[in-house]
Amino acid sequence: MSTITLLFSIFLLTLLMITTMAIVRTRNLFVAVMLMGIASLLIAASFFLLDAADVALTEAAVGAGISTVLFLGALALTSERERSPSSLPLLSLGIVAIVALIVIYATFDQPPLGSPSAPVQAHLTPWYIESTRELIDIPNVVTAVLASFRGYDTLGEVIVVFTAGVGVLFLLGTGASASAAGAPLSEDNAGLRHYLIPRILGRLLIPFILLLGFYVQFHGEYSPGGGFQAGAIVAASIILYSLLEGEQRALLVIPQGVLLAMMVGGVLLYGAVGVAGLVLGGNFLDYSVLDSDPVKGQQWGILLIEIGIGITVAGVLISIFHAFASRGAA
């Protein structure tokens, strides 16, 4: 990292600090959520500066779209302003300051930013990069590590998403059940249909967002992206649709049952690939045995599990959105 990009990143981080302070200070939750949006953008930009394109993409898909929508959905049903003042700010500040000092204290022995001799760079990284080239043969090392070398973690991640979906559905009920089955589509409470410009533009853009989602899905092996980001983008497009046309119409496009099937199907696809490795004589999640050529097998495996991730994430995020939105309607 050249000094100048380092300076950029320092600048961004300074902005980030200001933003977070403002987030904590403001008593208006709506403002806080908006500032969160800014913070997310800043973080994503910093990630990008720090060579983490995949992570920046994820932060983009999550922070800019999903997260704001969810927070606003919750705010709409609760209240915008914090009512009571902070309790015991001095005590809390004291604790916080002490921990901060401890963390800063720790920094002085750390390997400086970007040092090639740092253990992180020296220990595992070369192996990953070499092996990706040799054993998996896809350009995106992050995807290789994510989906194959540490595919088990990623399975866990999918399970976390799935759990969140199950949890939200458990807590809030499914969108379908809340918006009383069989009730006619009420035209006057259906999203932003009366706002011409957003509606038409949205209509224009949704196909492209969807396509972009699929693109990110299938190019995860070549460029930043992958199942999770793709799932989030696809979900964002559906969320956009239901913001524009009303939640009930969105449920007509992808019914609740399909969403549930997606949640489940993705996880099962992932699991099935893992079990297939086991059945074909390898270990769990060993993709090499999927094809006569182990490298090909790895690629197939990665492709399949990324699809699994994408399906689950999209299903879960859309379900969560509907669950939130239907609470508002009820």
Binding site: V264, V267, L268, G271, V275, F284
Partner: peptide
């Protein structure tokens, strides 16, 4: 030899199924 893995995989893969029942 797969038992340590199966220990996790069995409940893990059953969980999605259960949602559908």
């Amino acid at each position: 030899p797969h038992l340590p893995m199966l220990q996790v995989v069995v409940p893990l893969l059953m969980a999605p199924f259960v949602v559908l029942l």
